[in-house]
Simulated scan of single mutants.
Amino acid sequence: MKSNSSDQQQNATTVDTAVAMLTTQTKSLEKSQPTSSNGLTHILRKKRETEVVMPFDFNTMHLPCDLDQQGRGSIIESFPNHCVWVWNNRYAHEGFYRVYKTYQLEAFFFGQYYERLKRFEIDPHTWDYTNAGIN
């Protein structure tokens, strides 16, 4: 039992020493100033923006855009205005590209779902209950 407690104390001392060394190194780095002015400046970069503030109301943002069609670049002028805006800004930054891909994904899923429902309602189909055991 004594060996375990002495090992824990030794590990704690080692960790404290390592933390103390890191803090003295960071303090020395913070205090260091450039010795010459060679024209280099550090440009502070912000984290990438992935959230986009859309200039549309909720209902307009959720109108359908068929951005999954083939040849959409040649027919984009006939799309609604919010679809054209997303198309034009898709490469502005990562957030707009995410919006574009989300619209494209929604167009695929909801377009496919709509087509399946329409085919189910329009195409003739019959129900065969002969082997269902219903009299």
Rank of each mutant, 00 (worst) to 15 (best):
E94S: 06
S74E: 15
V53I: 10
N135W: 10
R116T: 05
N81T: 13
F108W: 11
T41G: 03
Y113N: 10
N81H: 11
S36I: 10
E94N: 05
F96L: 03
F120S: 06
F79R: 07
G111C: 04
P124N: 05
I76A: 02
F79E: 12
A132P: 00
T13W: 00
N88S: 12
S6M: 04
V86M: 04
N11R: 14
Y97P: 01
L22S: 11
M54S: 07
S36A: 12
M1N: 09
D128Y: 02
Q25L: 13
T26Y: 11
Q70F: 11
M1G: 14
G95W: 04
N135E: 09
E49S: 13
F58I: 11
T13G: 05
L117G: 01
A92V: 12
C65D: 06
C83P: 05
I43A: 07
I75N: 07
R45G: 02
P64V: 05
P55F: 01
R48S: 10
L22R: 08
A107S: 15
N38H: 10
K2R: 15
V19F: 09
W85L: 10
P64F: 03
Q69V: 15
N59C: 05
R45Y: 08
R98P: 00
T126V: 08
E121D: 08
R48V: 09
K101C: 15
F109E: 14
T102S: 08
K27L: 13
D16I: 01
T13M: 09
G111T: 00
F108A: 06
R45E: 14
I43L: 13
E30T: 13
K118F: 03
